[in-house]
Design a protein around this nucleic acid. Structure first.
Lengths: 347, 347
DNA sequence: CCCATTTGTGGAAGCGCTCCCAAGCACTTG
DNA sequence: CAAGTGCTTGGGAGCGCTTCCACAAATGGG
């Protein structure tokens, strides 16, 4: 890590320091510091003198100096081990970021976005976290191979996972939704409406949420005594949903029900089904997963399983902040938020 | 800003410091520091001793301490004065983040995402930047009212804007694309193919990109002697495109050409036109703007103006890093990247 | 009215790091 | 052989801040 141009500015000239505030306010640096940080054990007189000086000088504390001694950075990382377009275009990500941001805004904590390309830069990400550049980490969209959970547990950085990690789930806290139950319920809906040949478009095999949903589909199918052989995998994108639907319908033209592990993939599937002239839901009923905006705008509107992403993100963030504050040692809490089936037209 | 639980860990126990590295390597702290930071003026012997000690101890430098003296944080902020879903679901944002990240990855600089709700938290954002928590700022998607450009120029933080700011454009650097020229060209295409009644769905009136595109449309219309009265505004979302198209077609049912200021809005417009039974491009030709993935998947594929978002973001980031490195004082550079017309089916 | 408490204050000691500077050293060179 | 040259090296100062600690001043109870 070659550093560049030190450019050691004198600074005595520009930015005011705590010393100057103290001098202007006519108190010691210690008192000024106390007054600025919550004002415990500070007389009203001193407090207002400091306040005035701060305003007058336009003083802002130097975060590096502060965090050097407090050992806090007042920022947390959101780790996304997947910087492809996929992440950004997925409303799941948007919702997560929104939820996180809402909580952080309350407390004046900043968000550092760590986009780690799988493989190469995982090391970099890990180094950054090990450095304690941030007070904690929120990991989202992790895959089987990045052993992030274990690594983070090893370095002892407060962290919370969005979604159950593959391994190390017993060592880190995570917030998840009942993917299995949700998809089971979705499948049961199709069964209840009389579908007999139900296929599924599952998500990537290296993500727990996808595998859990697939398991839910399997459970419902087994319970109804239906054969669970019509499975195709996508990667949660619309395009992959198209491809999967095409493959599925080719192998199983008799399908009258389709359980899709994400709304985006369902959009692709709907398009393919429309092309093939299948009427929905009469010829084939379709149910998606997510309900993050797209489901209500498809043709026809998509019956789907809603996961409360905002809430999950919010809960995860609060959990993380608690651990950062040291409220709870490092007990690996897990929080499961229930999904809800949302009925529209497609099933 | 009340701080929480100081939890002053002794640290002498846990994380190794430079002192310990120096002791283990049998050199002074100064030499150890030099060895770690690029190894200028360090003998091979000392260098390898330090390297060994670092590895052995698992030493990672404390970023706060380092940045306290170097006055650098090795991180930059991406400021998004608009944390709505809009930002996230817009491929423009995704492309920007991708471009930025690509450049930062080369240099081990981190990305702090500053989502500022318009109004309230702008102050917070500004404070964060004033604090010099980051070495520089990249501002994207700014609106007329956040006087971010002036503020940033005032506090003297290195910054680059993505898109020309409303005011203060003479005080800050920015990277933009020729929105006016791009939309003019798009309009000329419609005129060339024989359209005589051309309407436009413009973007929000408080964004320069949107206004520039509208100006381009006007220029082309004026040059062709056509009346430029069929204008409707959206906010770059699909939904607003729908509404605008509906309104436009109601007021001007005779339209045979439509210039839309974003592909997302064009998607909405296409849907409305299809509902109305208009054939595209025969009854009405449509041209979009962006070409960031959606245009090639519409029905029919959308003729559009491509803005090279990735490149713009990359250039902007490089420009920012130059200013952070102090290569260029604060000369308000501006960089204009040309758009290109991409012909598909819709026009 | 004195002593025990509470409350407010400032001095000073660092937090871990970088970097200036002067000194040390092994060589050249005149 | 003395003086100059270039490269390494470590001492030490200091970045701006928080917080421990000791002390002074105010308060209150017996």
């Amino acid at each position: 890590m070659a550093r560049v141009t030190p450019q050691r500015t004198p600074l005595g000239s520009g930015t005011p320091t705590l010393d100057e505030v103290a001098r202007v306010a006519g108190v010691s640096r210690a008192t000024a510091s106390r007054a600025i940080n919550g004002g415990q054990r500070v007389s009203a007189r001193a407090q207002s003198a400091v306040d005035l000086a701060v305003r007058e000088l336009g003083y802002v504390p130097n975060p590096a100096a502060r965090s050097l001694v407090t050992r806090r950075t007042d920022s947390i990382a959101v780790v996304v081990p997947e910087p492809d377009d996929r992440v950004f275009s997925d409303p799941f990500f948007a919702g997560t970021l929104r939820g996180v941001n809402r909580v952080l805004a309350e407390r004046d904590i900043q968000l550092v976005l760590l986009l780690a390309r799988p493989g190469a830069s995982t090391a970099r990400t890990l180094r950054y976290l090990t450095n304690r550049h941030v007070d904690g980490a929120l990991v989202t969209s992790h895959h089987r191979d990045d052993r992030l959970a274990e690594h983070l547990a090893d370095i002892g950085l407060p962290c919370v996972f969005g979604g159950r990690p593959w391994t190390g789930g017993d060592r880190v806290a995570y917030v998840d939704t009942d993917n299995t139950g949700g998809e089971r319920e979705a499948t049961e809906l199709l069964i209840a409406r009389g579908c007999a040949r139900i296929g599924t478009i599952a998500g990537p095999t290296d993500m727990t949420a996808a595998e859990d949903r697939l398991a839910g589909w399997r459970q419902a199918m087994a319970a109804a005594g239906l054969s669970a052989d019509a499975v195709e995998h996508g990667d949660f994108t619309e395009r992959s949903g198209e491809a999967a639907a095409r493959a599925l319908m080719e192998r199983h033209p008799d399908l009258d029900g389709l359980v899709v592990a994400s709304d985006l993939m369902a959009v692709g599937a709907l398009r393919v089904l429309a092309e093939m002239g299948r009427r929905i839901p009469d010829d084939i009923a379709v149910v998606g997963y997510d309900d993050l905006g797209v489901a209500e705008r498809t043709a026809p509107p998509l019956t789907t399983v809603r996961q409360p992403v905002d809430e999950m993100a919010e809960r995860a963030t609060r959990l993380l902040l608690e651990r950062v504050d040291g409220v709870d040692g490092s007990h690996p809490v897990r929080l499961i938020i229930p999904p809800t089936l949302v009925r529209r037209v497609s099933a």
